[in-house]
């Protein structure tokens, strides 16, 4: 576990995450606009609105422009014959080992945003945990799913 895993996830992940973040930030922006309207209509204290605006600006910068890139840079995975090795996390770096013989099932999934970029998430479940490798290109994700599924079948251990 000294070296990080070698494979990066798809670079389009950044865009997909940015869009997701923008959708969430839209809520904050709507609240800010409502604040301004309230200020004009019923004299709602301006300083509260300005604080909300500040928070919205900062959080938009962080979640839309800063985090997706950092997240992408950190996200790595590697699939060995015997186990799966995943790394993720910006401030807190997580590295996880999942032995093939512990894998119960593996699936790919795709939300509307991922679909737009032709991306898919691979989700790997053991009897105790679930792990995800997000935003791989459709092709890579399916290959990975089939590969893990084939490797996981080799040894069956009863609970």
């Amino acid at each position: 576990m000294r070296k990080p895993p070698i494979h990066l996830i798809s670079k389009d992940a950044i865009k997909a995450w940015q869009i997701t973040a923008i959708l969430y930030e839209a809520i904050a922006w709507i609240l800010t606009v409502i604040g301004f309207v309230l200020h004009i209509v019923i004299d709602f204290p301006l300083w509260i609105v300005l604080i909300v605006l500040g928070i919205t600006l900062i959080s938009t910068y962080i979640t839309v422009f800063l985090l997706p890139k950092l997240r992408w840079k950190r996200w790595r995975y590697e699939v060995f014959e015997q186990e799966i090795y995943i790394q993720h996390g910006i401030l807190i770096v997580n590295r996880t080992l999942i032995p093939m013989i512990r894998v119960q099932h593996v699936e790919t999934k795709q939300g509307p945003i991922l679909k737009k970029f032709d991306l898919a998430t691979v989700s790997i479940s053991t009897a105790a945990t679930t792990h995800e490798i997000p935003a791989l290109s459709n092709e890579v994700a399916s290959d990975l799913r089939d590969k893990i599924s084939a490797l996981a079948k080799v040894d069956e251990d009863d609970v």
Partner: peptide, 16 residues
């Protein structure tokens, strides 16, 4: 060993 389903190592920036 054979009962452990997954292993996870976590470090935040102060830990690192």
């Amino acid at each position: 060993h054979k009962r452990i389903q997954a292993f996870n190592k976590k470090q935040h920036f102060l830990h690192r």
